[in-house]
Design a protein around this nucleic acid. Sequence first.
DNA 1: GTCCTTCCCTAACAAGTGTTTGGTAGGTTA
DNA 2: TAACCTACCAAACACTTGTTAGGGAAGGAC
Lengths: 203, 203
Amino acid sequence: MPTKKKPQVTAAPARRRELLDTAAEVFAEQGYNATTVRKIADHAGMLAGSLYYHFDSKESMLEEILRTFLDELWDGYDTVLEAELGPRETLEALVTESFREIDRHRAAVAIYQKESKQLVAQDRFVFLAESQRKFEKAWLSTLERGVAAEVFRSDLDVRLTYRFVRDTVWVAASWYRPGGHHSAEEIARQYLSMVLDGIAVRT
Amino acid sequence: MPTKKKPQVTAAPARRRELLDTAAEVFAEQGYNATTVRKIADHAGMLAGSLYYHFDSKESMLEEILRTFLDELWDGYDTVLEAELGPRETLEALVTESFREIDRHRAAVAIYQKESKQLVAQDRFVFLAESQRKFEKAWLSTLERGVAAEVFRSDLDVRLTYRFVRDTVWVAASWYRPGGHHSAEEIARQYLSMVLDGIAVRT
DNA sequence: GTCCTTCCCTAACAAGTGTTTGGTAGGTTA
DNA sequence: TAACCTACCAAACACTTGTTAGGGAAGGAC
């Protein structure tokens, strides 16, 4: 009774990565639901059925794309958090790191932004919810530390501030294009300047 | 040769409005493509085919939802712009007006945010592109006036600032729920405070 | 009563969906 | 040469999709 053999997930999946990249591109551009496996196959220069040699399902492609992105994101975030910088420096580092991730995983970030809300309800995507909780905890505690240390304003609702900073950073993925006018670091610098000091002239 | 009669679009469409509201709700929650006409019909307590007594197609529902929203949005925006306030007061009024629209058209705004990018390519949704141009012009000129009048900082990229303010405001629709902790005006006030003066303590 | 309009249902349609099955060309190994 | 593995194709599958055609119940107009 020979079980069907699939290519090793753990082994070096050169072609697999290629296909995931093109899939991510199409998902980001057209939306997950509007993307048919035939469109993905078209972009990859093959037929729809051939994708199933590499992947179990369309959904498993999406899962792998998001997992890969979040794994790398948390690599960066954890490094920042373990450095135990001051609140303001932590915020600056987190924002900068976020823009670097947008630079590296533009498509995955766009997909995450658009689809995560509907995906978290599904069992196979619970890891999205876990990531969100961890994310919120990291940011909220940084903001609260800053308020306690009197480097961030205390007259603002912290949760509102959190959503403000979070959204401000990540929506950039919807218009950011690598190789554009500004580098990720330059955008991070200006964003930080706006978030920290505002856009009004100081009087 | 009797042409098929559809209910008058111009006449008072009480039921029509109801159906559009529920459709908008489902579109916003599940995404346009993931929403089937059967789901909409379910939420409205009827069968899928019955929707076609009121509407030509699923797409025409979406169009009417977005058109209605944008019409009301520009009613508010035009009123603000015609008042010819100073740049800072204009920005404050535009932001406040935006949050009021989010309060009134939460579902439509969420749909707009998620789908407009893919819709503008279609002929029947060109009005989205026109609105976007008008929108960008209104905001950019306000920001530029502010820089010239030295009420907004001149060391920031104006286009970046534009996207910053724009996104900052509209993504709120993704988490805002009417009847929550803060009113639309209260959120607008705090957002404006952050955008204008930043979240850092002034030293 | 009859007629007409409004609003919905029943039942089906064709097109498109994700997925499966069996096959096969080409390279590698024995 | 023979056996085998990789990566794909060809063709179909069951199901869901948006949409349509015909019918009928309720109620007001005449």
